[in-house]
Amino acid sequence: MCMAAQTLEHPVAHPGLDTRFGELIEHYRPSIARLAATYESNRADREDLVQDIWLAVWRALPGFRGDCSERTFVFRIAHNRAITHAGRRRQPAATLDEALDVSDPRASTEQSVHLLSERDRLLAAVRRLSLNWREVVLLTLEGLPQREIAQVLGITEANVAVRLNRARTELRRLLGEHR
C-alpha cells in the first residue's frame, strides 16, 4: 500500500520534482476541483481546500516511491485533506438546500432545482450522500476501480463494493428527488 502519510514532511529539493508536480497539477486539477466541490459548497472554503490539497501533494511528493499509482497517491492525499478540512471551514456545513449551490440567486430554491443542469443535479445529489457513501461514489465517478478505491480509503475491496451498492441506490433516489 502506498504511503501518502508523509504529507507534513519537508520536501527535499531534487531535480525534476517541480516538473513532476506541475504535471500532476495539469493532469489532476479538474478532478481535485470536483472533489473539493463535493466536500465544500462555500467558494472560499473550496479554494482553501484545493490549496491545502496541492500543498500536501507537494510536501509528500519526495516520499512517493511509486508503490501505488500516481492517481491513488494524489486521491488519497486529496481525500484525507478533504475530510480533515471540514473542521476548518469558514462557514458551517451547507444545509441540504445550500448544498444545491443554486446558480441563480434570484430564483427560488424550487425553481432553481428545475433549472439545475444534469451535472449540477449530480453534484447536489453526491453532496447529500453520507460521508462513507460519498467518498466511494466520488472516486467511482472519477473512474477509479474498486481496488484503487480500497487503497485510497484504506478499506477492503469487499467494503467498497458494499458501500457502492448502497450508495448507488441512495444516489438514484436523490437524483429522482431533484428532477
Binding site: 476541483a33 470536483r34 473539493a36 466541490a37 463535493t38
Partner: peptide, 14 residues
C-alpha cells in the same frame, strides 16, 4: 452516463 457527465464537468474549477 453519470460517470461521463461527472468527468466532463469542471465543477468550480476556476
Amino acid at each position: 452516463d453519470l460517470v461521463t457527465v461527472w468527468q466532463q464537468s469542471a465543477h468550480h474549477d476556476d
